[in-house]
Structures are given as C-alpha cells and as structure tokens.
C-alpha cells in the first residue's frame, strides 16, 4: 500500500497525519569510552561540529513547543556529554517522557540518585553477556561489573531499568542466563533482537553474525523465557532483521525523528539520507521535509536497492542530504 492510499484510511494510522513527531531519538554525542564491535553509530571520538549549548537549548525549546511527548537520549555514551543533566532537567521540567540509553559505566550511587530525582521513564543499560568475559569480548574496553553495578544502583533508587542485549556469535548462547540475571537485578524489562548490519557491525559482519541455527535456538529460548517471566518482567524481542524493518517502514514510516549530534536529522538508521539540519532549520520545517522525503524517488529507489543488497547498509553512516 502506498502513502497516498493510506491517507484515505483511519486518521492517525499514517505519520503524515501528525503535526509533529511523536518521538525523538537523539544521539547527543559520539564520544564513547568503549569500542563495541557491533556499534551501529561507530562511536568513539566526538564530532567536531556537535551542537553547542545555544543550539542544544534552541532545539529543546522546539521539542516543548511542538509538544513532543517522548524523547530518548543515546550516544556515543550520553553521560559523557557535558550538558547531559541540563538536557534531562529541561525535558523533565517540561513533562516530557525521557529514556536514556547508556553503557552504565558512569552510573554510581550518586548519579543513580540524581537520575531517580528526575523521574525518567527509564534507563536502558547494555549488557551483552551473562558474565564479564563475554560482555567485554564484544564491548572493547567495557566493564561488565560496572554495568551490572549500575543496574543495581538504579533499581535500588526505584528507577525503571531496562536491559538491552545484542546477540552475536560471541554471546548468543548466553541469552537465557542474561534474562535470568536481569530478573535477579530487578530490571523492568529486557530487549533484544537480531544484530543490525550497520556501522561497525557491518564492518565486522563476518565475525559477528550468528548462523540461522543459532538464531533458531535463540528465539526458542526467548519464547520460553517470555512465558517464564510473564507478569514478572517484560521480555521483549523483535524477531525481524533491519531489512524487514526497512521494508515495513517504506510503507509505514514512523512518526519520529532521529537527531544526530551535529543537528542533522536522519530519515531512518539503515538509510544514509539526512532530511534537515537543526542548525539551519526549525524542527517544524524538518518535519515537513521528513514527510516529503519518504515520497522522494531517490530515497525509495535506494531503499529498494538496500533491501536487495543488504551489504549496502554499510553506507548508512555516509550521509546524503536530501533537503
């Protein structure tokens, strides 16, 4: 079904029906203390042109004016951003739901208390193994003990704590134990799915990608664990890969905006297209661009090529401006 025919259906089913995004996924930085083999963002060092304080606050004010209900902050490692708490305080004082996605290594008791005071929707910690050696084999320079300790600090302070697990050949066999660990830590939920062939994961695809047989076992364990923890902890898994997601989003683009640290706005992760620049345009203008971009032949044709040749996903961080 194309976008035009969808317009005739129930209002609100299409992203075109909305005055503004419903959700902002904001990578506030690219700086990270780790060098994960599967990092979609290829994070590590800071970008030279990241938004400065005025630009960050100008954007924050627009989020409030457009009544965006929900914002998720990621990075890089978001807690390394010098304005991290100022950004969080601004969003929370504006009654916006806030999720933070972090490796957890900078969350000690004091930081957990500060986060608890801000009443985030949740904090999501990456745990890529049920033990230190597995986690650290994938998350180079990572410290599993610190990530686990962060979960404990957050749970103790009554912060909704979610755990995300990315399966690779290194760790896929530990998903069951990881879920048990998450429950023992008092997590609100666990998210997982297939590793995505983007960024550094695309470059390391040959050593990372699990076999079909490994995935089969993985999803069987997940199904069992989902039943086991029903009513006690949310076990959520996304059974499709990023290509399936892209196919679906070509028909139903999400009502969201993916903001890069330099203010550029990406159409969707797996594609290289950038539909606006917050340093030069308002969020309202960019939302119009976003709506048009999903009907742009160049975008549609390239997306179809990616679907046919998934290795093109490796191009997703080589941005192409279409505004």
């Amino acid at each position: 079904m194309d976008i035009a025919s969808e317009m005739d259906m129930q209002a609100g089913l299409s992203f075109l029906d909305y005055n503004a995004p419903l959700f902002i996924a904001w990578q506030i930085n690219t700086e990270c203390n780790l060098g994960c083999l599967h990092c979609c963002e290829e994070a590590g060092h800071s970008m030279s042109d990241e938004m400065d304080k005025d630009e960050v606050f100008n954007f924050l004010r627009q989020i409030v004016e457009l009544k965006i209900p929900y914002v998720a902050l990621s990075g890089g490692e978001p807690l390394l951003h010098p304005l991290f708490f100022e950004i969080c305080e601004f969003l929370k004082s504006s009654n916006i739901s806030l999720k933070v996605e972090t490796n957890g290594e900078f969350i000690d008791h004091e930081i957990a208390k500060r986060i608890a005071g801000l009443r985030f929707r949740s904090v999501q910690i990456s745990l890529d193994g049920a033990n230190a050696s597995t986690h650290e084999r994938l998350r180079l320079a990572g410290d599993w003990n610190k990530a686990v300790a962060a979960c404990r600090f957050l749970v103790k302070e009554d912060v909704n704590t979610e755990i995300v697990f990315v399966p690779t050949r290194f760790n896929i066999h530990e998903v069951g134990e990881l879920i048990d660990l998450a429950y023992s830590l008092g997590a609100y939920g666990v998210y997982t799915g297939k590793v995505m062939r983007i960024g550094r994961a695309a470059k390391n695809w040959g050593i990372l990608c699990p076999s079909d047989k490994e995935y089969e076992k993985f999803f069987a364990v997940l199904k069992r664990k989902m039943d086991e923890y029903k009513e006690r902890m949310k076990v959520y898994y996304y059974p499709y890969d990023v290509i399936e997601e892209l196919k679906y989003r070509l028909e139903y683009p999400s009502a969201s905006a993916l903001i890069l640290p330099n203010g550029k706005v990406k159409l969707i992760g797996p594609l290289p297209f950038v539909c606006g620049d917050l340093k030069k345009q308002t969020l309202e203008e960019i939302w119009k661009n976003y709506k048009e971009a999903w009907q742009n032949t160049k975008v549609i044709e390239f997306a179809k090529r990616v679907i046919a040749e998934p290795k093109l996903l490796a191009e997703s961080n080589k941005w192409v401006e279409i505004y």
Partner: peptide, 17 residues
C-alpha cells in the same frame, strides 16, 4: 480508540540503528 503503535512507532530494539 485505536491502537496505531506498530504503524507510527518503531520498536525499541531496532530504533537507534
């Protein structure tokens, strides 16, 4: 009241790609 979650909101696991 209609649930439109799948249509307008990407799943949390796949979102940050």
């Amino acid at each position: 009241l209609e649930d439109v979650s799948e249509k307008v909101m990407a799943q949390p696991y796949i979102r940050f790609t």
